[in-house]
Amino acid sequence: MKEKLLFELNSVYRDNMRIKGYSFGEGEESACIVGATRGNEVQQLYICSRLINIFKQLEHQGKMKYGKSVMVIPTVNSHSMNIGKRFWSTDNTDINRMFPGYSLGETTQRIAAGVFENISSYKFGIQFTSFYMQGDYIPHVRVMQTGFEDIELAKDFGLPYVYRRNARPYDTTTLNYNWQLWETKAFSVYTSATDKIDVVSAREAINAVLSFLNKQGIIQYRCHEGFISQFIEGHSLMNVKSATAGIFIRHADVDSRVKKGDVIAEIMDPYTGETADRVIAPQNGIVFFHVNQPLIYSQTPLFRIIPTDDLV
C-alpha cells in the first residue's frame, strides 16, 4: 500500500486539510474509488476505509493482478466531516458540483482540480455518494446518461439494480459526469445510508466493488457474484408524493413488495395524533426509495416504486 498526498489546503485557523489516496498494485491506473465528498457521508467514508483494509490484505496475498493498480480516496472533504457540515466549511459550496475544478479558481474549485488531476486517467471510476433528500435506497449502481455510459458494465457489480437517469444541467459539474467526459467508465454506488453506518449495506457495496474488479481482471477475489442486475430508468419509477404535511409513519421498507391499494404510510396530524392522510401504493411494485425524515412537507416524494406485475 502506498499513501499519496493528493492535495493539501493550508489554513490559518485549523490544521491543513490533506486529501490522501491509498494505492495498491503497480502499473495501469485501473480503478479509482472515491468516498465522501460531503461532510455527512459517513457511510461512504466507512466503506472506503474497509476497502483499503481489504486491498491491503489482497496485496499482501499477491492477489492484485500484475500490471494493475487501484487507488482509494476515503474523503476529499475532511474539514467539513470534522465539524459535521454537509458542504464546504466556509462558503457552503458543494465539492461535488465543482468538477473538473480549476486550479486558479475558488477554494472548492481548487480542491476539485487537485483531486481530479490525480484521478482523471483511471480506466474505471467508482464513487460512493448520496442523495440530497434524506432517505434510504435499495443498494444500486447509478449511471448518468451522457452518451458514454455503459449499462452492461454496470451490471458487473452484481447489485440488484442498475439505474440510469438523465443528466441535468447542474449534474455537469459532478465527478461522475466529468469522469465520463475524460473517458473513465464511471459509476456511482448508492447504499442504504449516508450519515450513519449501515454495516449490512456497506458489506453489500464492498462485495459489489470487489466482484466488479475481479470481473475486470484487476484483482483476484472469490466471492458470491451477486444478482443479475435489473436495468431501470428514472422515468419508469412511480413517485408517490405526500398530499399532506405532518408526522410521517412509514409502513413499507425499501426492497419490500407492495400491492396496489396497500397503505404504505400514514401522515399523522402533529397536534391531534389523528391520521391526516393515508399514503396508498398506486400500483404493484418494489420500494426502491423512501424518505426517512419523521416530519415531512406536503408535495414531498415519499416513495419511489419500481412497477411490477406480481401476479404470483
Binding site: G246, P270, I296, Y297
Partner: peptide
C-alpha cells in the same frame, strides 16, 4: 403554497 409539518404553510 406547500404545507409544512406543523401548522404552517410555506407561501
Amino acid at each position: 403554497s406547500v404545507g409544512l409539518p406543523i401548522d404552517e404553510k410555506l407561501m
